[in-house]
Each structure stands twice: as C-alpha cells, then as structure tokens.
Computed example of a mutant assay.
Amino acid sequence: MTALGAVFRPQLPPERLRSLARLADDSGLEELWLWEDCFREGGIATAAAALAWTERVRVGVGLLPVPLRNVALTAMEAASLHRMFPGRAVLGVGHGVQDWMAQVGARAESPLTLLREHLTALRALLAGERVTTKGRYVRLDDVALDWPPPGPAPVFAGATGPRTLRLSGEAADGTILTSATPPDGVRQARRLVDEGRRASGRTGVPHHVVVYLLAATGPDAAERLRAELAAEGTGQVPGLGAAGDADTVAEAVRRLAEAGADTVVLQPTGDEPDPESFVRFVAQEVRPRVP
C-alpha cells in the first residue's frame, strides 16, 4: 500500500504546529512531514513536539542539512526520538541549499563527500557501533551512543542529482525526492538508487522512496499551483503537481506510486489559505482513493 502524508510547511509559524499535528493524528493521516528550512524552524525541535502531541502518526523530517550538524549530535537527537517514540520518527539528511549553507559559513567544497561521510557515520552510530573515523569532514574518535535505538533506525537521504541518488542507494535506507520530480523522474531516480545498491551489495535490503507532490484544492487551486510552479522555475515541466478535487489529486498520487514511490507526501502551496482543511482533505478524501 502506498503511504500518504502531508507537509507542515515552515512558512507557517511554529505555534501552528500543535493543532495541525493533532488533526493529522485524529484524522488518520499516516505521515506528517516537516522541513528544516533556513531560517525558519528547526527540524528536531518541531519533530519532538509533534511526536509528543500525537499518538500514532509518523513524523518525518525532510531534511536535516548535514553542513549545519555534527554527526554525533545528529545521532544523539535521532536516537532520542527513536527511543521515546518507537517506530514513529523518520529522519532524512541532505546537502542543504548551498546558498543558505554559505550564509552561515558552513558550505562544503564537496557536498557529496560530506554527505557520504555523514551517512556512513550516522548509520553506524545508530546501529550501536563504536566509531573512529578521520574523513575529510567527519572525524570521530572512539564515539558510541550510550542510548542507541533498541531497534532499526532508518536514515533517509534527500537527493536530486545522479551522483547523490547513487550515493543514497549505497549509504542510506531510503531516498526523499522533491516536488520537482514527475513520474518519469521517479523511475529514473529508482534506477540510479538501484545502481548504488548494486555497487554496495545492498540489493537485498529494502529501500524506501518518498516523493513530495505539490497539491492544491479549492476554487483557486489551479491558479495557486501555476503560480508556485512558476516561482520555482518548474512551470514548463510536464507532470508536476495536482490541482483540483480528490479524484484529481489521487490520480496524481497513483501515477507516482506506479513509478516507484512508496510514500507520497502532499505539499500544499506556500499560500495555502486553510492548512487544517488541507490535512483533512488528504486524510479523509484523497486517502480512500489511493490503494
């Protein structure tokens, strides 16, 4: 079954999260996703709050920019979430927006090398291993978590380009694709991820693909969707986004699932006038129409 989620966009103030998280939980939505966008809301703080306010919904962070974070701190925070809320936290890491990383003096000369080193060390620490490594960016000396997760703690990687997609297959447990990914892009991403899995001998290990889908509903849905796609520079890319009623949006979800997405996360436009209604729409109207 295709999992379905919705995004709490950080254009909303953090004090709005409590009501939306509880609504997602109560309405039966499977996943609520958060973003750590500079310079809005921190991913771990919002994820911990959303998990504490809810009982069953999974909470994803897509994604934590690795240039901002020492890997030991990422591991400590991730392990705490997994122990306090078993099976409900989904964490993704990635390059981050390079302009933002430059603004805070954290831009790496080789983002791919940094991500590879971070993923390798993070997954080892979460697996309870004692890690010593001297990489170009990640350096640990006899580091182990006192409180590692007692069970699996999957780490996802945000990826767009071919090299990062292959790396995700090699070194991550899942891949997060942006809303600029049409169905054909999902198929291509799956191929590249699988190349990485074969290269690292991980073909027998499941690899979960999450895709964001920009979506709008209501009387001005098509106009809002067109405006956001144009602002993102993707207005001419066929197959992006969905505007209309539940049948229309569900059909777009199904196309992504058929292309290889395991989870589709509906992303409201930045000017969504009623985020609560959007969550209800996803959970109560779109979900029943998606296998």
Rank of each mutant, 00 (worst) to 15 (best):
F8Q: 04
F8P: 02
R9L: 12
P10V: 05
P10Q: 03
P10R: 02
Q11G: 08
Q11M: 03
Q11T: 06
Q11K: 03
Q11W: 07
L12I: 06
P13T: 07
E15A: 08
R16T: 05
R16G: 09
L17Y: 14
L17H: 05
L17T: 00
L17W: 08
L17D: 03
L17Q: 02
R18V: 14
S19A: 14
S19E: 15
L20V: 11
L20Q: 07
L20G: 11
A21F: 10
R22S: 12
L23V: 10
A24C: 13
A24S: 15
A24G: 13
D25E: 14
D25L: 14
D25M: 13
D25A: 14
D26H: 14
D26C: 09
D26V: 10
S27C: 13
G28Q: 01
G28Y: 07
L29V: 09
L29N: 11
L29Q: 13
L29K: 06
E30Y: 08
E30I: 07
E30D: 13
E31W: 10
E31D: 10
E31F: 09
L32T: 10
L32Y: 11
W33M: 03
L34D: 08
W35D: 09
W35R: 02
W35F: 10
E36C: 10
D37K: 05
D37W: 02
D37M: 04
D37F: 03
C38Y: 15
C38M: 10
R40N: 01
R40L: 07
R40M: 03
E41G: 05
E41P: 01
G42A: 07
I44L: 07
I44N: 00
A45V: 05
A45I: 06
A45T: 10
T46Y: 08
A47H: 03
A47N: 01
A47E: 06
A47Y: 06
A48T: 01
A48M: 04
A48P: 01
A49D: 02
A49L: 12
A50Y: 02
A50M: 06
L51P: 00
L51T: 01
L51M: 02
L51Q: 03
L51F: 02
L51I: 06
W53I: 11
W53G: 05
W53D: 01
W53N: 06
T54A: 14
E55H: 12
E55Q: 15
E55S: 13
R56I: 15
R56M: 15
R56L: 15
V57K: 00
V57H: 07
V57L: 15
R58H: 14
R58A: 15
R58N: 07
R58V: 13
G60P: 01
G60M: 08
V61P: 00
G62W: 03
L63Q: 00
L63R: 01
L63C: 07
L64E: 08
L64H: 09
L64G: 04
L64F: 12
P65V: 10
P65Y: 05
P65C: 15
P65L: 14
P65G: 03
P65M: 02
V66P: 00
V66G: 07
V66Y: 06
V66E: 04
P67A: 15
P67W: 09
P67E: 01
P67L: 13
P67N: 02
P67R: 14
L68N: 00
N70R: 13
V71Y: 08
V71P: 03
V71M: 05
V71D: 04
A72V: 10
L73C: 05
L73N: 00
T74S: 12
T74F: 12
A75D: 15
M76R: 09
M76G: 04
M76W: 10
